[in-house]
Nucleic acid binder design. Structure first.
Lengths: 355, 355
DNA sequence: ATTAATTATGTGTGCGGGCACACTTTTTTT
DNA sequence: AAAAAAAGTGTGCCCGCACACATAATTAAT
């Protein structure tokens, strides 16, 4: 049963009294067509509301698009960095028949040289597009410089590189996320408490992001005139190793017994929750990212809020951006801040399902 | 430059030493293939990891799928019900070249007969699939009974119809959403306050949903032993008209001056916020849905939390479900609860952009 | 004016698969 | 054992579009 006849190039040709070849020339601006016919064709296209069939076009063109992705290697499927990868794979499967081929490369989070190594592999391949999680700012800058020189469009996820010509940045508004963390943490502690901004860094250079986080977090308290009621401490531990963290925390908590809330600036809030549970401390925790351990501690009550930056969505969208560029020639918006989902025990299930 | 050669039916044919016709018969289980050759073909398919090209298949089949949608008419683009529509249109555009055609029908939110009228139109068209927002429970039940009789798959959005064979329900977990509302409202009021569950209903029958909402909301307070600290009132106003609502609210607040928080069970929290601002009342508000007026009042501070059930996403996903059914023959999960996004002033911008 | 060089236009093939049909081989029927 | 039916296999055309190539109509060059 035919319901809506689709308009094809043939229909337009018949209507305009020319051959399909001419239609083709007009559509693709190949020239070699007389002004009168060109006009006629354009009219016909408008009149019939013709839109080229994307499937047929893709099939006929038969070209392939190679997308290389470069992100940290996830030590386990539960790890944060397995999530963008999952999103990327999902989107890749969706678009594979459009000729989109995705090849994933990974670097060691604690080894800049592995990053450089992978970038060289990618540059050699001369892909049509790149998706990059630029955790090593300096090395990443060098990499994207080269990409720009080779005219390879790239999409940044998770973190941005300022002043560069990326196709798009898809990730959180870092400062805002910390501001929200401030609001959330404040909502679960009593007045006149001390709170702690807890950084755990191991190796790589993300000082600028940490700065923006701290700034955003403190901003909430200054803007809402809570500065004299709430005292904010900062503790930076140069490790994510459980033992070291526990040791440093013990030291700190003994010196600062009034701490009633902690804002953990990476995805390892569960470590701190663990510490609190172990030592029966009633301290509220706000952290980032829905990794499995955080979900556990959210359910146990050791973590109060998790701010999620939908890493899976970031992966999906990054691929979509390049797909649209290749297939539709659409240039996306440069900066696309991902929603900062506020996760509590009561809605965590929904996010597990979808993100 | 060929990077990864795609495996076609021809490749498989060559590898298995048969013609493409035979491959085709094996793939589609059309029979008329000798067991030996069938085996050979299956081996070849596995060995070469052959996946039929979806674009070519769709093009060759050339069939059309009509999806009819039936949802309340949105009086303005700002209205809640324009958002699922937007999502549906977005997805429809994406899949149009796959032969997916979407026709939208609307009914008057306050007129059951308009609903029935539209259902009849749809039934006559005998579409391949239906997307339904079943706000009139009784009439909707009759409608889906007929759909089931005509073997037309349907997806429900926004509200579910129990005990029916829908392809899927895509919408919120209503009870849970109210539980969350309880938690959120509780987090912004002082101890020993009175709070109000405010229903505004005009005409149609959604009593069951309202019951579940009230139950979920109260559950939070009982489960967390807040019953003696917080007194929960319920007020149901049979109108959404500003004047009436204001009048009823005035009456109620005069009688119950201790109210410090309101949970508005529909998308019109902005009305109540308006009332509070006008009368300089310091009463916290939690409500549903990111309609434009709510966003305004979120920013003004008159609304503290909005729980959003991503209506645009609901529309998108509903179309996707049918697309997958038609094109991939995938049956989706029956119940798909949409994430209940928690919106505050600080993250509202992100949701406006994406949802 | 005649040929060469352009420019304008039409035709045909292939992308990867689906399906109708033709043809061959085997099995069943009488 | 011959005819009819069924099973097994291959070929060709079509889906809608892009692009190479062939052909026709102009224009420029000699």
């Amino acid at each position: 049963m035919e319901r809506t006849k689709k308009i094809t190039i043939q229909d337009v040709a018949k209507y305009a009294n020319v051959s399909v070849g001419t239609i083709d020339r007009v559509i693709h601006n190949r020239g070699k067509v007389s002004p009168e016919k060109k006009q006629k064709v354009e009219d016909a296209i408008k009149k019939l509301n013709f839109n080229p069939n994307l499937l047929a076009r893709t099939l006929a063109l038969g070209n392939q698009f190679l997308i290389c992705t470069l992100s940290p290697l996830a030590p386990s499927p539960k790890h944060y960095w397995s999530m963008p990868k999952k999103g990327i794979d999902q989107a890749a499967a969706m678009y594979k028949d459009f000729g989109i081929v995705v090849e994933s490369y990974f670097y060691n989070l604690f080894d800049e040289s592995s990053f450089v190594e992978q970038t060289n592999k990618i540059l050699e391949l001369n892909p049509n597009g790149v998706i990059l999680a630029p955790l090593f700012l300096q090395e990443s800058t060098l990499f994207v410089d080269k990409l720009e020189k080779q005219n390879i469009p790239y999409v940044l996820i998770d973190a941005d590189i300022p002043d560069h010509e990326s196709l798009a940045y898809i990730g959180p508004d870092v400062k805002r996320s910390a501001y929200i963390a401030g609001k959330l943490l404040n909502s679960v502690i009593k007045e006149n408490s001390d709170i702690l901004i807890l950084n755990m860094v191991k190796g790589f250079e993300n000082a600028s992001a940490l700065n923006r986080i701290e700034k955003g977090f403190r901003e909430y308290f200054t803007e809402n005139r809570l500065k004299n009621k709430i005292r904010i401490h900062t503790l930076t531990i140069n490790s994510t190793d459980k033992e070291t963290v526990f040791r440093e925390l013990t030291k700190f908590y003994i010196k600062n017994p009034l701490i009633k809330g902690v804002f953990v600036t990476n995805s390892k809030a569960y470590l701190i929750s663990d510490f609190h549970l172990l030592h029966e401390l009633d301290i509220r925790v706000v952290g980032y990212d829905l990794v499995e351990e955080n979900i556990e501690h959210l359910n146990k009550g050791g973590i109060d809020y998790i701010i999620s930056q939908s890493p899976l969505q970031q992966g999906v969208r990054a691929v979509q951006m390049l797909f649209e560029l290749f297939i539709y020639k659409n240039e996306p918006k440069k900066v696309q801040h991902i929603p900062l989902d506020i996760i509590i025990r009561e809605n965590v299930d929904f996010y597990i399902q979808f993100h």
